[in-house]
Amino acid sequence: MARAVRAADGGAERGPDDAPAGTIGPMPARIPRVTKTEAIVLRHRRLGDADRIVTLLTPGRGKIDVVAKGALRARSRMAGHLEPLTRTEVVLAHGRSMDIVTQAHTLDAFVTLRADLDRLSSAMYLVEVADRLTFEDVDAGVAYGLLHVALTRLSRGDGLQLTTRVFELALLDASGFRPEWGQCVACGDAVPADRAAWSATAGGVVCERCRGGAGGAAPIDARVLRVLRAYQSLPYEEAARIRLDAELAARLEQVMHEVMHHVVERELKSARFVAAARRAGASAATIADAAGERG
């Protein structure tokens, strides 16, 4: 049956008989009814009494919302495979507004992350950063790979600061927001680490000459800047050799949180939880010390 099809480029309709003899003419692009992909679960929210909308980061389709029917029921076969911070393989049936998960199978649950509050809160931060810097129907192969690697590193016990900062810098780079730590963002000259100022608005460091023109540029600790340069340029194994004391780590985190806040244009809520978890640990240690002294 000859049926008119619309050309992929949106051109005029034509029939298959228009193709030259002996060749197969252009085929209409068809959306497969069922697709299979691996994904990292970013978050979920309730849909009615028994269902969930699950936000997935996929390599090919970017960030997508899908419906997991019955996921709130205690006997759901899928709920455990669609928990946030799980790398999972899903089969999706094409739906009218959202795809529907028909099968889900855990590839990596990052189990050790869930047994340590500091690692768990850091992983939640990584996921929120990835969530903010990825978009629907935009290829996210690089972002997916970076998040997968970062969660793997966190779960195997790599340094929290190292893993988090390297992930942030790499994802910013891949997303087109690479901060410039080496050269002045105003004039392009190399900036010595001990005479640099920086501004999140300007997108990196400025030299002494250009500092006046970069509104809000503030001095940056030379040690922090050297670490940021190393994390941005060195292979991971070499960057991992850099030792950070608590003060340096805190300053590094402060700078990167300012960068992220500027890029995503909102507060990253999980950053507050990372800090709250750390404070709870510190106050617990204080109480334990006081009890020890009393004892």
């Binding site: 640990g281 106050s283 240690a285």
Partner: peptide, 15 residues
């Protein structure tokens, strides 16, 4: 899990 670990961290030092 996050809530339970957070509470555990806060409450254990209270004995």
């Amino acid at each position: 899990e996050a809530t339970s670990m957070y509470l555990g961290r806060l409450l254990r030092p209270l004995g």
